[in-house]
Amino acid sequence: MSTADNESRQAQTALGTLRFLLTCWKVNLASAMEYRLSFFLLAGMMFINNFMWLFFWSLFFHRFPVVNGWSLSDVMMLWAVGAGGFGWANMMFGNFHRIAPIVSGGQLDVYLSQPKPVLLHVLASRMSVTAAGDFLFGLAVYAWVGEHTLSGGLRFAAGLLISGLIFMGVMIIAGSFAFFFGNSEGIASQVFNSFVALSTYPADIFRSVAKVLLFTLVPAGFISYLPIGLLRDYNSGFVWQAAGMTVFLLAAGSLLFRAGLKRYTSGNAIAMRG
């Protein structure tokens, strides 16, 4: 087979996958719209939830105007990048934090029987309705206190991309452990909650070992330092590290998932009930 052929075949598969993703999103959106009222209520609730946190932070910074170099607007941008990134990931790939229950519940069969990349298919098969609120919250806060220049906008977009992908990478890894250790749903949801919580506090309040962990084993720091290292005082060293960590997490996640698929036993669900 000639290289040209090969390339066109690959381009076609990529195009096919993209079309497939678009269809997934269209279907998800349509089914979310079936329950419009609860959709808007839930999204609105998430918006308010995040806003209450900002309210807490405004009270906190009212008393302590600058904490380790962070001011209120930095924390607000932290929430914009964190919630916004989490929001788009959860809208487009809403299953990213539900891999463990899907695997141990034996629900992968449907995806395995279809000719599309399994992980991508799983991820894109759900759209979280609350996530729209998170995403819009991120945009609203950016509009409020963000830097409204071309470069500022691009850096904010890059921040959203990095934070969303890091959330996904971490949860794909955590979820894939379900292939290897039977009932790890509890652990995965624990990782999820802890990671999300950790990523909403300024990276600079942590010291020594905690700080090292935050940029290695529990890489929430690459999200919670974005408001400083990417948005306020652009630091190319940090940005490259963050991008590297993102790529690493996603690669490790998809490799682990693929390795796990070999051990997948769809019978789990029946075994559990018996």
Binding site: S194, Y201, P202, I205
Partner: peptide
């Protein structure tokens, strides 16, 4: 989870 959150608070308030 409580352990984690309280640890974060210790860090936050120590900074403050």
């Amino acid at each position: 989870f409580l352990l984690l959150i309280l640890f974060v608070f210790v860090q936050l308030w120590s900074s403050a």
